[in-house]
Design a protein around this nucleic acid. Sequence first.
DNA 1: ACAGTCATGGCACGTCGTGTCATCACTATG
DNA 2: CATAGTGATGACACGACGTGCCATGACTGT
Lengths: 203, 203
Amino acid sequence: MTWRVITRISRMGRWQPGARERLEQAALDLFLEQGFTETTVPQITARAGLTTRTFFRHFADKREVLFAGEESVPERVARFMAEAPPSLGPMELITKGLAPAAAEIFEGRSLDYLLRRRAVIDAEPALRERELRKFSLMSEALEQGFRDRGVDHLTARLAAEIAVTTLRIAVTRWLDQHGDPDLPATINQTLAAMRHLTNTPSP
Amino acid sequence: MTWRVITRISRMGRWQPGARERLEQAALDLFLEQGFTETTVPQITARAGLTTRTFFRHFADKREVLFAGEESVPERVARFMAEAPPSLGPMELITKGLAPAAAEIFEGRSLDYLLRRRAVIDAEPALRERELRKFSLMSEALEQGFRDRGVDHLTARLAAEIAVTTLRIAVTRWLDQHGDPDLPATINQTLAAMRHLTNTPSP
DNA sequence: ACAGTCATGGCACGTCGTGTCATCACTATG
DNA sequence: CATAGTGATGACACGACGTGCCATGACTGT
């Protein structure tokens, strides 16, 4: 019963477990209901049964509540690349590793959650900025991973950006199609299109 | 009615002309002296001889003062692509058009200004976010331009991202080398490296 | 000379994000 | 069982950001 939940939260408010998750859920719901800008932090914390100050202990700013868990992406990327066969060149590694890596990163989040989250982000330029930064951090981790594998600076940077760009476009297409071809398949399709485009001879 | 336009432009302000430019100069100087976060808007306006309220009439927020003039980039991109020979494919257009287009966009700004501006942006994550957004807007304009030339949706998106990525990396390298090989040459080098990377066969 | 236009000045206000200290539940230790 | 320690939360103050609103004064056109 909603009544019981609310009562328990309001009564035992202090130290109820899952504060972070409650904040994420309340924030996403409110952003969908009334928009990101129109939602204040006190509104989020009130729905989660917490105080404003606590919100900023869990998230650096109001936008970060939509990007929880992504801070581990760079180190996961680094581990993934360190474990890959050293013989693989940059483009080979992207071709063979991007799809499984992306599948690992996105596992555990439902398609419905991803779609609702994207709707909020796409509606707010400030949130799109933050999302671009997240991808940028991922690109930096990729670049470092390539360099650790002996790839020269420029090639590492290019390969990292190509990988992230492909992933971003593939995820967009995947969500546009409501997940119909699964993400790995969409990534490989996008990679194929990228190859075809860049291999076009210029007469 | 050309004389009317000129008159309006020459009358830039209530007391002293060039309010916008003074704000940009004061902001860049202060950001370099004491950092972006440590600089308040009242400090900028005090140095420029204006008030806080006036700052936000010229710039949407504190970060935008470093990106003045870039709001015209998307439409300039659109015009550039509309004027290009329709026979050129996406990759041909990038190969032949990116360098001159970039040269046009960056003309009139001194290398010293660009280097100091980059130092400020690189030191502040919030400013890097905004810069990523500017490139994203440029990419959207490019994508629309490709689609207007009859390119399919996915290829247009890929080509736009490749062009922007190449430009970004080339500008970074160009500034790293203090402008030694000029920007068009650096862009073409970067494009060559991109071609070489993506054309690598995967055994 | 007169009225209109427009950038600026000035003020109030809500929101964001942080510093600081107090409070309370849980835990370890004796 | 008592006590101190730990760690998350509550509560308050505060500066900075950004906006709405109206007043002011210089310039423009008639």
